[in-house]
Structures are given as structure tokens and as C-alpha cells.
């Protein structure tokens, strides 16, 4: 196959897709309006410790692998989750529930990404989300490359009234040609289906 793919476009589309997953799913999951997605790439770097807690999930297929990390503090997670838990204030949310909220959020984001790829006939798998405390993200070594794998990252922050969940997305593309469909993908055609992805 000698099709020339615009790699930069593919990369940009992946980034946009993940961002779209993040901003839509956090709003749906928290039932809060007014979340904003702010870029962090200028001030932070992938591999940096951005929070006391981290939820990590892997979306993987033959051509692409996306590692999505959500960095958060327990207090911020409580602040953005108390509504969905039916609590009057963040204090009503336990630490465990706050962790579950972010784990579920990463799960929903990954589900959105998988579903989007599947809409382009690109089959993808998904891991369970893993939530850890501490500094483990520093061991997820990351160096941007263009060959043989195309490796790049995206950093952003989901902010709601001075509360934030930071996201680090590490993307590895092994076969950009297989992602050809992405170039014509229109993010606005999101079907607004907020159904959760059913993983095993």
C-alpha cells in the first residue's frame, strides 16, 4: 500500500478525539456544566508528577496505543463528584468514592475513544482503569519519537471553579496508514451517546 498519510493530521485528530472524550465525559459523568479544558503543554511535561493520585487506563489496537492518565487530588475529585453522589458538599464523599469517580471517568473517556475508533472500523481494546497514589507516573518513561513508532503526548487540565483534573495522554502509532479514516473524521458528528462502554 503506497498511500501517503498526513501523519500530522492523524496526530492532531487523535489529540482532538481524546480531548473531546475528556470534556464531554467529565461533564456527563459529573453532571456539572462549565468544565473547561485548558492546555498544559507550555507549562508542564509528560512524565511529570501532576497530582497525589492518578488513574491510568490503556486503549490499544493494532495501529495505535493510547495511555490516558488522569492526575488529581482527593479534595478536587470530591468537589466535582459530590453532585453525582447526591451529596450536599464534597465532605460527604469518601476518599474511596472520589477515587472511583475518577476511575470511572477514565473508563468513560476510554470507552468514548474505543467507540469512536470502532465507528471508523478500527477495532480497539481497553484495559481496566488502575488508580494509584504516589509518584508512579515518573516511571512511565516517555520520549517523543517519529520512528519506528510515532510517539507524542498531550497535556491538558479539566477545570471547574478552580478544581482540576489533569490529563496526560501518551500516544504511540505503529501504523499510521491504518488510521487513514481519522483524517476525514469529523469530531462534531459525536452522536452524544453517553452510554458507558462495557468492558469485560
Amino acid at each position: 500500500m503506497s498511500t501517503t498519510i498526513d501523519v500530522e493530521t492523524v496526530k492532531q485528530k487523535v489529540i482532538e478525539m481524546v480531548r473531546q472524550a475528556a470534556i464531554t465525559r467529565v461533564g456527563d459523568h459529573s453532571r456539572l456544566d462549565g468544565f473547561e479544558l485548558l492546555e498544559l503543554s507550555d507549562t508542564r511535561a509528560a512524565g511529570e508528577v501532576l497530582g497525589n493520585w492518578m488513574s491510568i487506563i490503556l486503549v490499544t489496537g493494532d495501529a495505535i496505543r493510547i495511555t490516558l492518565k488522569l492526575h488529581f487530588s482527593s479534595s478536587d475529585a470530591k468537589a466535582v463528584s459530590h453532585v453525582v453522589y447526591g451529596e450536599d458538599s464534597p465532605n460527604g464523599v469518601s476518599d474511596a468514592k472520589a477515587e472511583d469517580f475518577v476511575k470511572e471517568l477514565s473508563n468513560l473517556m476510554a470507552g468514548y475513544i474505543v467507540k469512536t475508533f470502532e465507528g471508523m472500523n478500527i477495532p480497539m481494546g481497553i484495559s481496566l482503569p488502575l488508580c494509584t497514589r504516589g509518584f508512579y507516573e515518573v516511571f512511565a518513561d516517555y520520549v517523543p519519537t517519529e520512528s519506528p513508532l510515532i510517539r507524542f503526548s498531550d497535556l491538558w487540565r479539566l477545570e471547574y471553579k478552580n478544581r482540576a483534573i489533569s490529563g496526560t495522554v501518551m500516544i504511540e502509532i505503529s501504523n499510521p496508514n491504518a488510521l487513514d479514516a481519522l483524517c476525514d473524521f469529523d469530531l462534531d458528528q459525536d452522536d452524544d451517546d453517553d452510554s458507558e462502554f462495557d468492558f469485560l
Binding site: 484495559s127 481496566l128 488502575l130 504516589g134 508512579y136 469485560l200
Partner: peptide, 22 residues
């Protein structure tokens, strides 16, 4: 599917171990 289930179980155990270590 069985492999995925097994991997998920390992992941859950790993998460618990991490919580204990922390």
C-alpha cells in the same frame, strides 16, 4: 475473553497491593 478477565483480575490485585504499599 478469559485472558482479558485474568488480566483484569491481576490489575485489581496490583491496585490493592499499591494501596497497601502507599
Amino acid at each position: 475473553n478469559q485472558d482479558v478477565q485474568a488480566s483484569h483480575k491481576i490489575l485489581t490485585l496490583l491496585e490493592t497491593a499499591n494501596a497497601q504499599t502507599e
